[in-house]
Amino acid sequence: MALSKGDKVHWNTSQGQTTGTTVEKKTREFTLDGQKFKASEDEPYWVVESEKSGSKAAHKESSLRKA
């Protein structure tokens, strides 16, 4: 499944399913809100913006589903 910037996606959290929008694809190690992520070409991460809270978080591409 290929995602693109601006796609509406959903993912699972401890509170249930959350919906948001893809903001930026990361394929190298990066830091977001003080937390390090080891993204790579083989295992990219997406910075996503939550529809409900507006906050940004990073998730593995494999954990996201198009909404």
Rank of each mutant, 00 (worst) to 15 (best):
E24Q: 08
G54H: 09
K66W: 08
K5D: 03
K60Q: 05
W11D: 02
L32C: 06
T22G: 11
A58E: 05
R28W: 01
S40L: 11
K52R: 10
G54V: 08
S55H: 03
S62E: 07
K36Q: 12
T19I: 04
H59T: 00
W46T: 15
S50T: 02
T31I: 13
A57T: 15
L3C: 02
A58M: 09
S63I: 08
K25E: 06
T19K: 08
K26M: 14
T22C: 14
S50M: 00
T21N: 08
N12K: 11
T31W: 05
K56F: 06
L3D: 02
A2Y: 07
G6N: 13
M1C: 03
K36M: 10
N12T: 06
S53F: 07
L32W: 08
K25M: 09
D33Q: 14
L64I: 01
K56Y: 13
L64S: 01
Q15W: 13
F30K: 09
T22R: 10
R28A: 07
E61C: 05
L64K: 01
H10Y: 11
A2M: 05
K8P: 00
S14C: 06
P44Q: 01
R28F: 00
M1Y: 08
E41C: 07
D33A: 14
S53G: 06
F37R: 01
G20A: 01
G20R: 00
P44V: 07
T13Y: 06
A67M: 08
E24D: 04
K38M: 14
Q15H: 08
K8F: 03
G34M: 04
S4A: 11
S40D: 09
E43A: 15
K52M: 07
W11V: 07
A57L: 12
N12Q: 14
E49R: 15
E51F: 00
K66V: 12
K66E: 11
S53E: 11
L64Q: 02
V47N: 02
A58P: 03
T27L: 00
T27C: 03
K38A: 14
A39H: 04
A58I: 15
T22F: 12
H10G: 01
Q17S: 12
K8D: 04
V23L: 05
Q15T: 15
L3Y: 06
D7R: 04
L32Y: 10
E49A: 12
E49D: 02
H10L: 06
W11R: 09
W46K: 06
K38R: 12
K52L: 14
E24K: 10
E61A: 11
Q15M: 14
W46M: 11
T18M: 11
K60F: 10
N12F: 09
G6P: 02
G6H: 04
K8T: 11
E49P: 01
L3P: 01
T18H: 03
K38G: 11
